[in-house]
């Protein structure tokens, strides 16, 4: 079974979210949702991570940080944009300091909608991320 053939490690970064999606990402790790049963581990180190979970949108200040973190992750890697803000800027798209979704800065593989995104959809997004990771790995091997 390719989908769970590996246990992806996740790096979470809060772009400029309201915290709503961040706490839902954390809630995924805790007993009710418990993604660790799939071998998903939240790591603080980009060099250990396979999947980059970004919540919140891009502002001038965090562009470098997001690119930096993405650059430090080893290939193959997958980016999951969690929540309306990460997908498009969401409700804050009209704010003066917001540039838009994460895809303005780095390539995004999976978009998870919702404000805030529900844990179920975040887990689904990660699972789709695993599939995308698998594909990238195959491409690299061939």
């Amino acid at each position: 079974m390719s989908m769970f053939s590996r246990s992806p490690w996740i790096l979470h970064y809060d772009g400029s979210s309201c915290n709503g999606c961040d706490i839902e990402v954390l809630a995924c790790l805790t007993p009710l949702y418990d993604v660790e049963r799939f071998g998903v581990v939240n790591t603080g180190n980009p060099k250990h991570a396979d999947i980059f979970l970004v919540t919140g949108s891009v502002n001038e200040r965090n562009i470098d940080i997001i690119q930096n973190l993405y650059g430090q992750m080893p290939d193959p890697k997958v980016v999951v944009a969690v929540g309306a803000c990460a997908c498009s800027g969401g409700i804050f798209a009209r704010a003066y300091n917001i540039q838009g979704g994460i895809d303005k800065v780095i390539p995004v593989d999976v978009y998870v909608p919702g404000c805030a995104a529900r844990p179920e959809s975040i887990i689904d997004g990660v699972v789709q991320g695993i599939a995308a990771l698998e594909e990238k790995r195959k491409k690299r091997a061939s």
């Binding site: 809060d14 772009g15 200040r61 704010a95 003066y96 300091n97």
Partner: peptide, 11 residues
């Protein structure tokens, strides 16, 4: 600070 500054008040 400023990494999450959205300028929400100015909305």
């Amino acid at each position: 600070i400023g990494y999450i500054h959205r300028g929400l008040e100015m909305m």
